[in-house]
Amino acid sequence: MLAQQILNGVVSGSIYALFALGFTLLFGVQKLLNLAHGAVFMAGAFIAYYCVIIGLPFWVGLVFAMIASGVISIIVELVAFRQIRKQVDPEFPAIVSSLGVDLILINIAQNLSNTRVLSMPFGTFPIEFYNIFGLRISLLQIVILVLVAALVGALVYYLQKTSFGRQVRAVAQNERAAALLGVSAASVYRQTFFIAGALAGVAGVLIGLSFNSIHFLMGEPYLLYAFVVVVIGGIGSVPGAVVAAILLGVTQALTKAYLSSTLSDAIIFSLLFVALLFFPNGLFGRAVLSAGGDRK
């Protein structure tokens, strides 16, 4: 039973990783938080839902949702960050403007769904179970694990091995210096927003399918989970984010199973606050948050 819960936690944790990786990638590149990332995630789930409803196969819906979420994310960049970045101290304005875009997307989804909770039609994804070492694992869970591993692998390859990855790192370190080297910051922002949005869209579809629930406010808790993952895993660290996300998924599965599902989120966030007291730099070392200097 315990092992089964852990397995379920690992599966949902891997989806959180997908979402959180995009979130931390964006922060790493532009040093501004994107509070609309949760709405992009929600949009992915909605788009896949409507694809399936009009009769497209699930796989087509997934791919379409991925691309469309990427495009929505580019629009988020355009509306919420393009102008704001020029301000002297854009940190707070960026919170406000990205929250503003978040609200617009939420309102659109609310009107589309008439404030109802939607769920994928029965049979969208084949329901099959396998027994491995006494654990029940569904086909969906296997697909999720494989898909997440493939996407994370592709992301790492893209960041480490391609010229785009080098450009991203250059802009992340110093936008002006990167411009002098001929790197177009605007194009790097566009590409990272597309990638982060596409990952969030896939995560939205997978979550919507796993929990059989698609709702216009579904993005908000995942934004908070991404925050937990980033604080614990360390900003910009891909392995940190993956490990922290899986830890989060497992903790959540266990608290839901053994303590209380109402309190699950409260327990997770409280644990985060406690962790902040004892591990100010995150569990994986990087000084995420101290304001300049290292004497604290």
Binding site: L32, L33, L35, E91, F92, A94, I95, L223, L224, F227, V231, L272, F273, L276, L277, P280, V288, L289, S290, A291
Partner: peptide, 10 residues
Amino acid sequence: RLRGAFVAIA
């Protein structure tokens, strides 16, 4: 322990 914008989400 948190800086700037992270306080908002926290």
